[in-house]
Nucleic acid binder design. Structure first.
Lengths: 339, 339
DNA sequence: GTGAAAGCGCTAACAC
DNA sequence: GTGTTAGCGCTTTCAC
């Protein structure tokens, strides 16, 4: 079980470590006969280069990092698995590994980032779920370490990102409900420090204003992005008088929670109450939920492409990508009962 | 942007690299005054140890690897995000990083494993979705590299694993349907080389035999674990005469596909046709799908605990863990129409 | 208490 | 063509 290193092969073949290294690396300045001998012995011994040593020497790790901002004990959010799949598949193709950590948002987070960056653990980072005054972005931008973000921020910094145009999407969705005749539309927002929550709420708000409908803070509540959380706050909205005739949730999971609550209350979705979400996660289709689709897997791939390009020192053709989500009208939204 | 290393601090403080190293590591044989000075300078300069160098020296990476067996272009399987969450959270707590790769099952897979193991990229590996004659397990067992598996295999090898007792679960579920009065129960299996597919099918088979019902190969079909795949083969089952009065799918995703197809055909789930799945992914609850619950997140945590213990050279109190899935009877299963 | 020296496994500059 | 030397940044004997 002794490790086979260049030294092992050098001793066995009688050549120097350097020559062995060059032979194996396919350099042209080593004689074919020598190379053959060395390669044969390497195969026989089952030689495999030590990646850590190579990393130390080359001063790069061929690894991209991502730190998942997990709230609470678990994140069953399908969003994460989709994006990791996209990121991982693309990185594999480009010859990079993916180092994943989990860290709850908060003061300890920066340490996790420094750990990766200054510890030389990765060559680049992908930041997801950007927040207002996002300190992770602030830190990374200042170090000039290669990174890309999924999401913008409200800091005055220029950095490469991909984002969905949540405002436009949300605007379109709200208009859709308004055009169906809804006048009192409840809104279940995500935690307001998340940038996407901010944009999505803005879109809702502007659509109301443009339609000369009042923006009523009473019908805007905040959930924690989970199904359970959505259910909780939906209950509040449904107990209001007059009751909203439609509900928009800032993500599908909360919308699904709202649906469950509405059903419990004996309401028929799409008729007595319209509900819409955001993301188009798989269950949304099953539940016939009207929603806005983001191609998360594809976004993951593109994030990987961008970070790989940055690591290689290339300049991006496009460093700010804004994707328009696609409105999918399904059975969960319909005209209000009394118009 | 020059890297701050021990050398930087050594030069600045006038001490040797050795002393700086020891001071920062908190060794007792360095005078308090010296330590203080060194620590101060380190902080001022924003020193952060180079993890790669440390890894090379210590001959360990404090990293655990997992290679996701992705089929096709994407794996939206909620199962993956759950288990990664569990694994990642626990590893973070134990001070380990998680290195994730993706690799489709096949001949290239072993190379990916060797890359991690012999390249010294990780200290241990987690293998998921074991298969019959699993070559990954065979390889790892032979190298005596630390690893744990989620799932057993049919090789005659002793290795640490956690597994669900898919046979017992499937047996119980099938009995449940039989006791409701079903006599012709269709079965949508997963690809047969997956061990869990094998066990789940066995449970179904034994339950039939024990109830003196025939095992009819005509009603056993194979799907690819996706919703779409489940829908495809469910269509075949529903066109048989006599039509099965109940369907079991080897995972929830395929069960959901079957439900969609049945609804299209005008069947009311739980009345005209009973359907059951396996896993209890979030949409299962929403859809009122009778299923078998596995605590995937918890399994992820336990896998991490085991691998960490193994890496530390500890012996496991329990190296073969078999968990019994819990039957959740929901509205998708009921008695057949004509009994 | 502190420093010099060796070495983890590899690559690269430079001689011969 | 091949070997010598140095060095990536760190830890760890072993002297003093």
């Amino acid at each position: 079980m002794a490790r086979v290193t260049l030294k092992t092969i050098a001793i066995k073949t009688g050549y120097s470590i350097t020559t062995v290294s060059r032979a194996l690396a396919g350099y042209s300045d080593v004689s074919p006969a020598t190379r053959e001998k060395i390669v044969a012995v390497a195969e026989e011994l089952g030689y495999y280069p030590n990646l850590t040593a190579r990393q130390l020497q080359k001063q790069r790790t061929d690894t991209v990092g991502i730190i998942l901002p997990t709230f609470g004990p678990r994140f069953a959010d399908p969003y994460f698995s989709e994006i990791i799949a996209g990121i991982g598949d693309e990185l594999a193709q480009q010859g990079y590994d993916l180092l994943i950590s989990t860290c709850p948002p908060g003061p300890g987070e920066l340490a996790a980032y420094r750990h990766k960056v200054e510890g030389g653990r990765v060559d680049g980072l992908i930041v997801i779920r950007t927040r207002r005054q996002d300190q992770r972005i602030a830190y990374l931008a200042q170090t000039s370490f290669p990174f890309v973000a999924f999401g913008r921020t409200d800091l005055d910094l220029d950095f490469p990102y991909i984002d969905e145009d949540g405002e436009a999407g949300s605007y379109e969705l709200t208009r859709h409900l308004i055009s169906l005749g809804h006048q009192r539309i409840g809104y279940i927002s995500a935690p307001p420090d998340l940038m996407f929550a901010h944009f999505r709420l803005q879109g809702y708000r502007h659509a109301l204003t443009d339609a000369k409908l009042p923006y009523d803070e009473q019908v805007v509540v905040y959930g924690d992005l989970t199904r359970r959380g959505g259910a909780q706050v939906a209950r509040r909205l449904l107990s209001l008088t007059p009751r909203p005739t439609a509900l928009i949730a800032a993500n599908d999971l909360m919308a699904l929670g709202a649906i469950a609550v509405a059903r419990e209350a004996g309401l028929e979705i799409g008729r007595d109450l319209s509900i819409a979400g955001f993301d188009d996660i798989p269950p949304a289709e099953i539940t016939s939920l009207t929603t806005l689709r983001q191609p998360i897997y594809e976004i993951g791939r593109r994030l990987s492409q961008m970070i790989c390009a940055l690591i290689r020192g290339q300049t991006l053709e496009q460093s700010h990508v804004l994707l328009k989500p696609k409105l999918l009208v399904r059975a969960s939204s319909g005209p209000p009962l009394h118009t």
